[in-house]
Nucleic acid binder design. Sequence first.
DNA 1: AGAAAAGTTAACCAAATGCTTGACTATTCG
DNA 2: CGAATAGTCAAGCATTTGGTTAACTTTTCT
Lengths: 117, 117
Amino acid sequence: MLKQAGSLDRVFQALADATRRDIVERLIRGPASVGELARPLAMSLPAVMQHLQVLEACGLVRSEKAGRVRTCHIEPGVLRMAEDWIAAQRTAWEHRLDHLGDYLTEHCDSPDQGSAQ
Amino acid sequence: MLKQAGSLDRVFQALADATRRDIVERLIRGPASVGELARPLAMSLPAVMQHLQVLEACGLVRSEKAGRVRTCHIEPGVLRMAEDWIAAQRTAWEHRLDHLGDYLTEHCDSPDQGSAQ
DNA sequence: AGAAAAGTTAACCAAATGCTTGACTATTCG
DNA sequence: CGAATAGTCAAGCATTTGGTTAACTTTTCT
């Protein structure tokens, strides 16, 4: 399992903003121009552009310009990478619970034993 | 599906830092004290404390102090929430591809049609 | 040609982040 | 008691982030 700390940094950072998640949710339904993305967003066009740059920098979004309109679309691979990291943690957590169960049943059968606080 | 934008903000923000992901990965294997978490981390103890505060603020980590040592443990529920958001996007993406396929096969049978790059 | 539309660039600003050092508070041990 | 241990608090500081406005460049439409 390769460590791409920088990549994960950027993806999670990109997803850490509600506006950018809105853009992702919009783009998941299909491609959109910068203006279409900006219209429902209660902020200036340059602000949206900066969010778009963050999303492109981490590979979540790709865009091409045709004429005077730039069309953006999602790139689902990077989303998977983030999901995989989280899933790996959850899996490890469940494994730990399993082994903890083994340990407890092997070393003490009494059901109400624990660290008394 | 309720929108808890603030929560997701905080969780993804927390995961957007490699140090904090290291702490999560460590804590997934089992509880640890602040000092144990700090030891491999190439930064001062207060810095680790601040990361811990971020992780606690978003609910990823819980801790209790006994005597002079504070023991931290993971809280996997919040991790699930983040995973679920990403999974929902991926699911929506796959649905879109399905319907797009329907549309294409209904409206044009020619098999080798696509955007030639 | 000239005006409207779509996007882009640059400069600036306030707030948040991620660290540091130094001082301080509890606990525990000899 | 006094010293070591474990953690905490408080400033301070450099950088990043998320937004603004104003000016500018390309298309495209009439």
